[in-house]
Structure formats: structure tokens, C-alpha cells
Design a protein around this nucleic acid. Structure first.
Lengths: 209, 209
DNA sequence: GATTGTGAATAGATTCACAGCT
DNA sequence: AGCTGTGAATCTATTCACAATC
């Protein structure tokens, strides 16, 4: 089974199942059925079973799923059993907010570094409790090597996105999350996911009328 | 034709077409064919024509599209011909970053207010160039009335998301963009779009292996 | 008796390919 | 001659419903 045969829709639902299982685990729930999960978090039971079936058999017929077992399985499936380092490019408002975002420091994906070209912000404290310092973009190659960062986050103005994307590619990251509202000319070896925050607002505006 | 018959996938592509047309307009391009757009921004020509066809006939057979005309048409279709006010709830890192985000101040969707419950940040400057001040959450009802805000943005910690969502509903917004990684119990009259930033990272991590 | 895992059925989205205009 | 608009064809995703299993 090849990972790229799995659609992003499925992968995103796996992340949701993982959240749900962590919440249940925190509550002390040890066993649960797909139906119970579906009802509580309004998801589809059949779809969850089908999504999981792509990766193996993890449940017990007649009983349900073991919460701990399924949680660790999902972490492994999602590639979160090993630590994933993230490097953020751009220490403006969004970059800094992402560096401090609790989600980017819980679990196994965490921000290892943040860089910028502006001397005015290089050296400034960033990260959850000032645990990181904004470093100079010219050090990007070194930083990626040092930290083993595999994921780059682009939080730069649209006009700087392409060159910074290429810099991340040269520095050796293997995937890029791009917040700039532009179409990047992509390197075939580095997966890009563009997230345009304004599109979400426009989607809501559309359905307002 | 009912707007809710149009899928979010289609609506999101309309936003992309709008970006593309604005870029072309800025370059001085007056006419363009779906094929040219598709090639330059790697989109699908047939899909663009089909998406537009849901709303009318805007092109000229044998010629292509008038850039200005199509741009204004798309703005109307997306509900961006009138100004849309946004109120952000939560003036933490993410809320503040969104309040300053240039995309939220260009075009016809703009941040009209930002609120928080923490007295420590009420009164602080926010917005693109300090043009906004963080106000007290208790004023939310008044603020929504004053500004005519239709869209609320939830940038609060997960545990506070549900209550703040309900507050936004009471205050009278008609749609909510939720950045907290939780499933909200939704009011049937207020559309919710949840954007979980961590899911994007997890998606990339999945395909890394 | 309950619930998983799954083939078959349905629904939805995308692409093809061409008739219809300019 | 060239491009749009669109029905038909294809591809993808979701839901149904039940045999297999505990």
C-alpha cells in the first residue's frame, strides 16, 4: 500500500479521530465503538471503519476499539510516532503566532526554529514561553541540518513566498505549509499545502446571502 | 438556484479565480481564456467553466472572458460586493495576528473589532496599524450591533470555544470561523467552519514517510 | 447480541468532448 | 478559427447493509 494512494480527505479524518481518541483517553474511556464516537463527535461510523480499514484491522468485532491501542496506532499511521520538527519562515504576526500556537508544541510535531530576514526582529524571543529566538534566514540550511526539520512553514508576504519556498527546498525540508495566498511553482520532491485564510472567510460570506 | 446547493469545494475555487483575476487586472490584462488561466495558475479550464456556469454565462464564445467583468461578477457571486464586517473573539497570538493579517483588510471583508475577556489585554492596540483597540467581551452584543458584523472568528483556547461560540450566536453573527480544535455543538442558524491548523501539519507528516 | 470489516450501491466531483456562438 | 457552455462519461467518495467474528 502506497501512502499517496490515500486521499488528503481520509488523512484529515484520521487526524480528527486522533483528537477524539486523545480526548476519550483523558476522560479515562478505555473502550468505544465506532457508533458511539460517531454520535458524540458527529462523524460517520461507517466512514471511520472504512478509513481505518485502509491500514489494517484494529477493532474487536462485537466489542469495539481499545482507545489506547487505536490512539497509538493512529499516531504511527500519521507518522507522529517519531518527533517531527518544523521550521517557520517569517516572524511577522502570523509566524510568531504559529510559533506560540500550543498545538504546534503538543504531540509529536513541534516548532524547532523560526527565521526572518529583518534584522529588526532577529534575536527577538518567540515560541511558547520565549523558548525560541528568531534567527537569521541566511542560517536556514544550517538550522534545517541541526534540527532535522522536515516541515517548513511559510508565513511571509505573498511577494516573498516563491523565493522563500525555494530557499526551504534548498535547505532540505521535505514538505511546506504555505500561508501566502499565491500559487507556488512547486518542486516535484517537496509537497506543498497552501492554506489561504481569507478563503475561509469568503466561503462563509458566500453562504451568508 | 439555492446557494446551499453549491459545494464548498466550488466556492473555494471561486475565491481562487477571484485572486487570479485581481492579479491579471493588476498586470493590465483585459481578456483571457479559461485555458490560459488554467495553464498559468495550474487550474483546470473545464472545471473553471463549469464552476462559473452555475451562476450564469459570463464569457464570450470564441474570445474568452473580460477580466474586469468577470472579477466584479465573482465578487458579487461571493457576496463581496457589499462590505462584510468581522469580529474576532480572543486577542491572544492568533487573534491578534488575524486582526493584523493584510488579507483581512483588503477587499470587502474586514476586521471591525476584536474582543477578549482578559483585562490585561483590553485596551491594547490591535489591527493593521493600531487602528483597532481590544475591547471587552461583555460588549460583544453592542459591538455586533454597532458594526453590523456578520462573521465571527473564534481564536480562543479549545476549552473556551463552545461558550464563546454561543456568545457570538446570541450577539447575532450569522457565521463563525473557528480556529479551536474542537467539535462545536452548532446552532442550526449559524454556519460554522472549523479550521484546525495542526491538521495541516499532520497531513504533511503523513505523506513524509 | 453487538460490533467490526467490507463488497455493493449510491451520491458527488471531475474530466471529456463537442455542439453552439462569436 | 477559437473558445465557451454543457451533456455524457469517468473517476472518487460516501453510505448501506450484511457476513464474519467476538
Amino acid at each position: 500500500m502506497n501512502r499517496s494512494d490515500i486521499s488528503p480527505l481520509t488523512v484529515n479524518r484520521l487526524s480528527v479521530y486522533l483528537r477524539v481518541l486523545r480526548a476519550l483517553e483523558a476522560e479515562g474511556v478505555e473502550r468505544i465503538s465506532s457508533r458511539q464516537i460517531a454520535e458524540r463527535f458527529n462523524l460517520s461510523a461507517a466512514q471511520m471503519r472504512k478509513d481505518l480499514a485502509r491500514f489494517g484491522e484494529f477493532g474487536i468485532r462485537g466489542v469495539g476499539y481499545d482507545v489506547l491501542h487505536l490512539r497509538t496506532t493512529l499516531e504511527r499511521v500519521l507518522g507522529l510516532d517519531v518527533e517531527r520538527s518544523i521550521v517557520i519562515v517569517g516572524a511577522g504576526n502570523l509566524g510568531t503566532a504559529l510559533a506560540r500556537f500550543p498545538g504546534f508544541h503538543t504531540g509529536r510535531a513541534r516548532v524547532a526554529a523560526i527565521v526572518d530576514i529583518d534584522p529588526g526582529c532577529i534575536g527577538r524571543a518567540a515560541g511558547p514561553d520565549g523558548g525560541l529566538t528568531v534567527r537569521d534566514s541566511v542560517e536556514l540550511e544550517t538550522i534545517v541540518e541541526e534540527t532535522g526539520a522536515e516541515i517548513g512553514v511559510l508565513a511571509v508576504p505573498p511577494e516573498a513566498a516563491q523565493e522563500n519556498y525555494e530557499h526551504l527546498v534548498r535547505a532540505g525540508v521535505r514538505a511546506v505549509l504555505n500561508f501566502a495566498p499565491v500559487t507556488l511553482r512547486e518542486d516535484p520532491t517537496v509537497r506543498v499545502k497552501t492554506v489561504d485564510l481569507l478563503i475561509f472567510v469568503e466561503e462563509l460570506a458566500f453562504y451568508l446571502v
